[in-house]
């Protein structure tokens, strides 16, 4: 049997103390233990990007992290992106630009884009595309997602 550890982690501003199996992936911890099912699991080898969350402010793949590694850390998931009733500007832009269809890849892309825009507030379209290349979307063909991120950015480039 795998050994267990107790961790204290803040997720979307709420503090949790949980005993976790040391091998439990952060993605499974968020979904199965905390019920935060907005973080999606699409490949479990770091390619599809669906499970992207923020760890201490940086966008990371939650399928490539162990829950135990987040002890003492601050995690933000897509459920924590909106400001209460008010959607995050990226969420608004995604809706406005029809940038999602099935919506499965969307949470990961939103979290990555939020961090990306924090570092690059006025990106060019090709920079957005290169960031987005770390995420698979099989519905949209990507163009509407690029439009949405551009619209939400400082550049508003379309």
């Amino acid at each position: 049997m795998s050994s267990h550890s107790e961790i204290a982690v803040t997720v979307n501003g709420r503090r949790y103390r949980e005993a976790v199996a040391e091998r439990m992936l952060l993605s499974d911890f968020l979904r199965q233990r905390l019920g935060l099912t907005g973080t999606h699991v699409g490949c479990e080898h770091g390619v599809c990007g669906s499970c992207t969350v923020h760890l201490d402010g940086a966008a990371v793949r939650s399928c490539l992290l162990l829950a135990v590694q987040t002890d003492g850390a601050d995690v933000r998931t897509v459920e924590g992106l909106a400001d209460g009733e008010r959607l995050h500007p990226l969420q608004e832009a995604f809706r406005e630009h029809f940038a999602l269809q099935c919506g499965f890849c969307t949470p990961g892309i939103l979290m990555a884009a939020a961090d990306f825009l924090a570092h690059n507030p006025a990106p060019a379209r090709n920079e957005i595309a290169e960031m987005l290349a770390g995420h698979l979307c099989r519905c949209t063909g990507y163009a509407p997602i690029i439009d949405a991120i551009a619209a939400a950015s400082g550049s508003g480039a379309e």
């Binding site: 897509v78 909106a82 959607l87 995604f94 809706r95 499965f104």
Partner: peptide, 11 residues
């Protein structure tokens, strides 16, 4: 979209 964007989809 509202639910999906908030991570409230039900897959």
């Amino acid at each position: 979209d509202e639910a999906l964007l908030r991570g409230r989809g039900r897959f």
